[in-house]
Measured scan of single mutants.
Amino acid sequence: MEVRTIKVFTTVDNINLHTQVVDMSMTYGQQFGPTYLDGADVTKIKPHNSHEGKTFYVLPNDDTLRVEAFEYYHTTDPSFLGRYMSALNHTKKWKYPQVNGLTSIKWADNNCYLATALLTLQQIELKFNPPALQDAYYRARAGEAANFCALILAYCNKTVGELGDVRETMSYLFQHANLDSCKRVLNVVCKTCGQQQTTLKGVEAVMYMGTLSYEQFKKGVQIPCTCGKQATKYLVQQESPFVMMSAPPAQYELKHGTFTCASEYTGNYQCGHYKHITSKETLYCIDGALLTKSSEYKGPITDVFYKENSYTTTIK
């Protein structure tokens, strides 16, 4: 009895394709271990004539594949690729409408935090270190965002349907971005203890939790000093293409032309909904596939993004 075979390709990165001759009487799992086709788990399936010449994702289970996976995804987590594939199996079914010149995501599976993050990423200057993220990001900007969303979920250790947080998501993504040249110098002034300067680099240099107003941050924000008295913390120097200011959701007025974009969060910790506000020729609110415009805006804002380049204080 002759062994019926077909020729397929296996890959971990969709760049390096490895030619395989597979036995049609055995499952993919018996031949390769966990195997995925377009995100779908085909591990328990036997090869079919229609699979001839198709590319299958496999887990990096030998040295060659491990090197290829690390170079593309910059992670050695053995569960990463499987999590990416199972997320992709959902995100490829989502709709990605162009809204006001940006790629958004039609609401499904509690994905409003991903839509808000995706919209924000198209408006701030950011370059990702893992080629996987950078490639998928370019495709997302062009309207094909399924891979990018699935990668975000995998890097953030999230599953489809789980509630997510924009600030946490951005923080994970910033860790995989090139923020080497970003720098922030802060000064804390206390009447009792004097003053202390701190220099922050990388992710810490672009994120701040405690106030939404970048102007206020430049002037000074009140913080408790270690001595128990009130101290003032203010920005001395900022070198970065953008800054992200966050605070627990509270009524906040966004003035046209003073910011790049913002995240609105309605609801409580267990259950809520994100919308995205962007400042173009007027203010726009993007909620999944829905767009509304207004000249002014007041609502429960939790993150505001500002364009920056270089700032030095005039406070002496």
Rank of each mutant, 00 (worst) to 15 (best):
G202K: 06
C149D: 02
N178Q: 13
F259L: 01
C285A: 06
K307E: 12
T55L: 04
K293A: 11
Y72L: 11
Y138D: 15
F56P: 03
A247S: 05
F174T: 08
A205M: 01
T278R: 01
G194I: 01
G267H: 04
A262W: 04
N61C: 12
T302N: 07
Y57Q: 08
T232I: 15
V67Y: 15
F217A: 05
A177P: 00
V22R: 04
G143V: 03
L102G: 08
N16E: 10
T192N: 13
S79D: 11
S181L: 08
P131H: 06
Q216A: 13
L114Q: 04
A154I: 05
Q251D: 14
P34E: 15
Q222F: 08
A262T: 03
Q30M: 15
F259Q: 00
L59W: 15
V221P: 07
G29L: 05
A69I: 07
T232K: 04
C156R: 05
V21Q: 14
S171W: 15
T266P: 02
C271P: 04
V8H: 05
S25K: 07
S213N: 07
A177I: 11
Y72M: 12
H48M: 13
D23Y: 13
A145P: 11
E144W: 06
F32S: 05
L126W: 06
I223V: 15
N187M: 15
K219G: 07
D180T: 11
P130N: 05
I223H: 10
T258I: 06
L118W: 10
H273R: 07
T266D: 11
E264H: 00
S181V: 04
P47Y: 08
A115V: 07
S279T: 01
C261L: 09
L186S: 07
N100A: 15
L17T: 12
S240C: 05
L119D: 06
Q175V: 00
V189T: 14
L151I: 06
N100H: 15
Y297A: 00
L118T: 05
P224V: 14
S213T: 02
Q237F: 13
A154T: 06
G101T: 03
K46D: 11
P131A: 04
A250T: 15
M170H: 05
T43N: 02
F70V: 13
G164Y: 02
M85W: 13
T43E: 08
N100V: 10
Y137K: 03
A142R: 13
Q197V: 12
N14Q: 14
G161C: 05
D303K: 07
Y113K: 01
Q237W: 05
I277W: 15
G33P: 10
V243I: 06
F305P: 03
L151G: 01
Q31C: 13
S50D: 14
A40F: 11
A250K: 11
K106V: 15
I301L: 03
L179R: 05
A117Q: 08
A87T: 10
L37N: 11
K307M: 11
G202P: 02
L114P: 06
D13W: 06
D109C: 09
T55R: 10
M245G: 09
K275F: 05
G202A: 06
L186Y: 15
V99S: 02
V203E: 06
G257C: 02
D38F: 10
P47S: 06
N110C: 10
Y36T: 03
I124E: 00
T120I: 11
D287E: 09
A177H: 03
L153Y: 12
L17R: 11
E168P: 04
G202H: 08
M24Q: 14
Q175I: 06
M209Y: 15
H74V: 01
D41E: 14
G220D: 02
K255W: 02
D165W: 01
A40S: 12
G161V: 07
E71Y: 11
G29P: 04
S181N: 12
V42I: 13
G33K: 06
Q197E: 13
P34L: 14
D41P: 11
R184C: 01
G164S: 06
T11L: 05
Y73C: 03
A177Q: 03
C285E: 02
A87M: 00
G29D: 10
Y73A: 03
Y252P: 06
T64A: 13
K127A: 12
K183I: 10
Y73V: 02
I6Q: 08
C149R: 05
K307F: 10
L186T: 14
Y265G: 01
Y137Q: 00
Q98Y: 12
Y84V: 05
P248M: 07
N268E: 11
P241R: 05
T192C: 06
T312M: 15
G29S: 09
T313G: 08
Q237C: 14
K127D: 11
T64L: 13
T302I: 00
Y269T: 13
S295L: 12
R139A: 14
E253W: 12
V185E: 07
P130G: 07
R66L: 12
L186P: 04
